[in-house]
Design a protein around this nucleic acid. Sequence first.
DNA 1: GATGAATGAGTTTTCATTCAT
DNA 2: AATGAATGAAAACTCATTCAT
Lengths: 197, 197, 197, 197
Amino acid sequence: MPLNEEQLQQIRDERRDQILKAGLKVFARRGLVGTKLSMIATEARISQGLLYHYFKSKDELFITLIEQALQELKNEMQNVYKLPGSPLEKLRNLVQFDDEGQLYFMLIHQVRTSDEVPEKAKELIKQYSMETYVIDQLELLFIEGQELGELASGDPRKLISCFFTVLSALMTLNISEDGAYQMPEADLILRIVTGRP
Amino acid sequence: MPLNEEQLQQIRDERRDQILKAGLKVFARRGLVGTKLSMIATEARISQGLLYHYFKSKDELFITLIEQALQELKNEMQNVYKLPGSPLEKLRNLVQFDDEGQLYFMLIHQVRTSDEVPEKAKELIKQYSMETYVIDQLELLFIEGQELGELASGDPRKLISCFFTVLSALMTLNISEDGAYQMPEADLILRIVTGRP
Amino acid sequence: MPLNEEQLQQIRDERRDQILKAGLKVFARRGLVGTKLSMIATEARISQGLLYHYFKSKDELFITLIEQALQELKNEMQNVYKLPGSPLEKLRNLVQFDDEGQLYFMLIHQVRTSDEVPEKAKELIKQYSMETYVIDQLELLFIEGQELGELASGDPRKLISCFFTVLSALMTLNISEDGAYQMPEADLILRIVTGRP
Amino acid sequence: MPLNEEQLQQIRDERRDQILKAGLKVFARRGLVGTKLSMIATEARISQGLLYHYFKSKDELFITLIEQALQELKNEMQNVYKLPGSPLEKLRNLVQFDDEGQLYFMLIHQVRTSDEVPEKAKELIKQYSMETYVIDQLELLFIEGQELGELASGDPRKLISCFFTVLSALMTLNISEDGAYQMPEADLILRIVTGRP
DNA sequence: GATGAATGAGTTTTCATTCAT
DNA sequence: AATGAATGAAAACTCATTCAT
């Protein structure tokens, strides 16, 4: 008995997700050129050929993931305000990204640091400006925090930018198992914006 | 009349340096797989074939650069004490790496985050433990700083580790020209260890 | 609908055989370095890339063929006894190798005479000692032949060795079409061991 | 004090001989494609570049050696008659080639069995027909030997051809050190033409 | 005459993408 | 929809040949 359209659609959606998840995992760590399609296929437990039913090319899969990453980042920033607590407590939440969030960060990092990515990816990243998505979003929060005396004084926009740069940098470190790097605790990172031990 | 041995050696040294410098520049930014030999050859203004007079393979060139990077890092750490000024001032110097230093950092980062590098490189990095090269080297400096009240209190070894992690992370960001990331000024980074604005 | 495992296995076996047969034909005549992969690919009527689905490298393909050649030689020697007729008649059979057998001989010859073959191939050949595979196998046959007066007297082991050397040498001549060399008839070769016209 | 023309000529002749000798040694064993110019240069203890003062190309060096080899073979055959003793004793002498002679044999063999040699070499070999150089030369000797009862009866030209084929084959075996092959003694080989133990 | 660094054409090898089933 | 064999273009690597000294 053949599957009906609905069931087929469900299979398609599942497969697509499988591939995207696998792609994120591998691309984030190894970059576009460092990733072979066979790796993604293996990770997603499907055949290499099937990838091409869902994505026209390696580049297209990569770009789709970039789009997801940017969307994710946007949401994350927009949700900061909805978090409970004082400005500082909200920021502390930001510092504690989940695993998937970290992978998205790494992916964006790959685009920023490699020249081998498709032009489209570059453009997407450019158009997502930290200015709009991050600084504008967090400015009010920082000003509020400074007024409360929770955050260090100084130009809030610059402070956000630096803080976010450090955060991004740490995300992309992909703290390895060998313990060479020690991920600082949230409070230590927050010192950059609080200026207090 | 053929060149004498001294002249030849000079040519060889120059050429080798040229290649190493070009390799560092390209590998640091693009990683091992993202780098094509033609890029290095172009950057070094030599033919692709000549690369193989000086290095047996792409991998060997890469490994040689890793060795240099580790040596450089080692020296850098050992020289901190010789810098003038208080412990904090010495640290400030550390934060202001030169361009080449940053490239070496990025190269080491490439090895840590990619699985595509030769086994030998992995081993080298492993054997260079942050424990020995960095933490042991800086421990006394931090204790001294804490006694002087310049540095925040707490386990000095852990503090160093976190500080160095942030430093490494920033180095590897390869602050791009598009201004997406803003590299924090030295004092801002130092807040992590001073806990003061 | 994808092919089932059995069909796939059949395709793989066929293709592998195709490649091995083509490799034997070209390697035997031209040696390892004299053979370009494009020649084998053309001879096997497949693309160059496909070779790498079946063999990791040119060397691996070569080594696989050497293993086959040695196995073939071993079988050949072990089968001599099962042939019908007197010792001399059995030997006459040995002298009339088939075409594939000759190619295998030539291949082994390539390893013996070239230094450019992979170490593994050298070891395989070494481990296959003529002593064990040939002389030990044929000794009883020769002694029997001498007792019957069919074969010349003298140290049978040495006689075998010389006989086999001549046989090998002739095999590897690859009697060319231009008629420069004339392959002696079986009886002429057998004179070496019979000592009779 | 600059060298005079005579001294220069002497140097030139020496160098040329050096190169030819080295080329013969390496080409004979490894064939044209299996031989790198660097091998010959090393063997001749000169630089790679110098080769091109004496020979226009690798091919030209190879062809020159083929010409020498053919000349040598021709002389060898013509000298058989001048050797002392009965026909059989003259033949026995032929069987005991010197080392250089063997190398020339191997070189000719390389041309016969490889397709990668320059067209010119092929032509040279073709033009040197075994018919003329060998069979015609030895026919009278064989007939004489048959009349004396030293040599087996039958078509002398065919007998020569077979005998020479076996001889060539053995020459090209390049009996390796591992003792896999045992070069038969002269008398054993001569059995082919005498038909007697 | 002599050297060895330098080049580039040709070969091996990799891998995204296509295709028959 | 799904598979994995097959292809070919591009990358790594080799080596005969050239060239500045």
